[in-house]
Write a protein that binds this DNA or RNA. Structure first.
Length: 453
RNA sequence: CGGGGCGUGGCGCAGCCUGGUAGCGCAUCUGUUUUGGGAACAGAGGGUCGAAGGUUCGAAUCCUUUCGCCCCGACCA
């Protein structure tokens, strides 16, 4: 993309309403525009990152054997009356009437609807296990929306629902989700720690929340420092292997890590003092096992091996996709702006032309731009007739992890500069080598085709 | 929902107390000179001052009502 043809409304000053850094930077980098309290339009740059995150979630869900569907945002109240939640959900549910006076609502979650789909079409235990998931907009009419996309009223969430014949099988589904979530967050450049949590109004027995440590987090968390040494890495996992998933579950949840809701001070104090940590965290996901709560309320059964109808055991598993934008920025920024991890960056590399209109600089930039595209990657080429400082400032703000700087001075010696946004390290090299380097960086992240022209 | 704050060009703000018909910086447009970390000069465009009602010869300013937004707290992906 050529910046001169793009829509990137970068602001020099922070809008007054934004108080935390991720909100400020999302506004300043022209990623979102507030529409009303807790409701945002996604401008091109923000939309691009949102879609990258969505893509990662889809890929990891598919890898775990989960099946994508899409359910409506507007739902009939009837199903919710069946589960008893139409009344129970309270003011957070946005209730709507259609022209015929029928009660509708904007989906805050989708246990009822997915259970209805399941009971309508799945009749045999042979179809199990099954996980249906969607990535869809949700609306919860929060008392106090705040912090930009971190606590919006409208938010984009991946919600997955598991159906199993037995509790044991359901716990494997639970573990499988935990594993897939670990992979998902790591691909996004995040360390999200599973912590024992409280089940809240959705109701359930076993539940973990995934928290990203950050000063501005809304949750108070307590953990054993040893949990932050854990990393899923590139290990190969068979998602159907019950023991393997259970081992990962055990590895990542046996150390003390809890939110304030479930914090047990006595237990916490058994950890060696030098490893006890209390901090703030941003909740970016949650997994639940809730047994037959909904299948019982809504009559979701399958025929078991014995020929008898059996209530299915269910769980629901969520990732706050839009919230992740905020969480990633909170975890990765400096005083100049955002620093995107390679896995989620809106553009893989920025190309800065220091002297627009200079024949050599223009053609070198165009050639670099084409070469990046040939690698299967996207470049943002700042071809505006601006001064260097302004271009650098924009690139730093929007946080592309790599920048290639092209100017007449370097071109005289046959070199361009490659700069890391994160470390600030700057290296001069011929353009072909710069392209090779960019290709290699993203090949390691599984992005691009790694091929040079 | 309790407490506090704020609504004035796209963004950040001043003006309000003490009423006289709206201003500054950034951004935008035009021109000239510039060009390796947010350029300089000259000119230009853009605002029914959140909304409604009232007081007044006259309201951004005073009064009333109302809507919206933000922060702290209690609740939540």
């Amino acid at each position: 993309m050529r910046l001169s043809r793009y829509f990137l409304p970068v602001l020099k000053e922070s809008p007054r309403d934004a108080t935390i850094v991720s909100h400020q930077y999302m506004l300043r980098a022209g990623m979102i525009k507030q529409s009303s309290a807790g409701i945002y339009s996604w401008l091109p740059l923000g939309f691009k990152v949102l879609k990258r995150l969505e893509q990662i979630v889809h890929e990891e869900q598919e890898r775990a054997g989960h099946i994508a569907i899409q359910m409506p945002t507007i739902q009939s109240a009837d199903l919710w009356r069946e589960s008893g939640r139409y009344e129970a959900y309270g003011d957070e549910m946005l209730r709507i009437k259609d022209r015929n006076g029928n009660d509708l609502l904007f989906t805050p979650t989708a246990e009822e609807l997915v259970t209805d789909i399941f009971r309508s079409h799945v009749a045999s235990y042979k179809s199990l296990p099954m996980t249906l998931y969607q990535i869809q907009w949700k609306f919860r009419d929060e008392r106090r929306p705040r912090f930009g996309v971190m606590r919006g009223r409208e938010f984009y969430m991946k919600d997955g629902y598991t159906f199993d014949l037995t509790k044991e099988a359901a716990m494997h589904s639970y573990n499988r989700h935990l594993v897939s979530y670990l992979r998902t967050y790591e691909r996004m450049g995040l360390q999200a720690i599973p912590m024992r949590a409280d089940s809240g109004p959705i109701g359930g027995d076993d539940t973990h929340e995934f928290l990203v440590l950050a000063e501005t987090g809304e949750s108070e968390v307590f953990y054993d420092a040893a949990v932050t040494d854990l990393s899923f890495g590139n290990r190969v996992i068979d998602y159907d292997d019950v023991a393997q998933c259970a081992d990962v579950m055990k590895e990542f949840t046996s150390k003390y890590a809890r939110t304030d809701e479930t914090h047990d001070a006595a237990l916490f104090n058994t950890i060696p003092a030098d490893r006890r940590r209390s901090a703030r965290g941003i909740e970016v996901g949650q997994i639940f096992y809730f047994g037959t709560k909904y299948s019982n309320a809504m009559g979701a059964t399958v025929q078991g091996p014995d020929g008898k109808p059996t209530l299915v055991h269910m769980g629901s598993h969520g990732i706050g996709v839009s919230r992740l934008l905020g969480a990633i920025i909170e975890a990765s920024h400096d005083d100049k702006g955002i620093i995107w991890p390679e896995g989620v960056t809106p553009f893989h590399v920025g190309i800065v032309n220091l002297k627009q209109g200079d024949v050599d600089a223009d053609s070198a930039c165009q050639s670099l731009y084409d070469s990046v595209a040939a690698l299967g990657l996207e470049a943002l080429y700042d071809d505006r007739n601006e001064r260097a400082g302004s271009k650098f400032g924009t690139m730093d703000m929007i946080g592309l992890p790599w920048r290639i700087t092209v100017g007449p001075r370097g071109l005289k010696n046959g070199v361009v500069e490659v700069t890391s946004r994160k470390t600030g390290e700057n290296e001069e090299m011929p353009p072909e080598q710069a392209i090779a380097k960019i290709g290699e960086i993203y090949r390691v992240h599984g992005l691009g085709n790694g091929q040079l022209k």
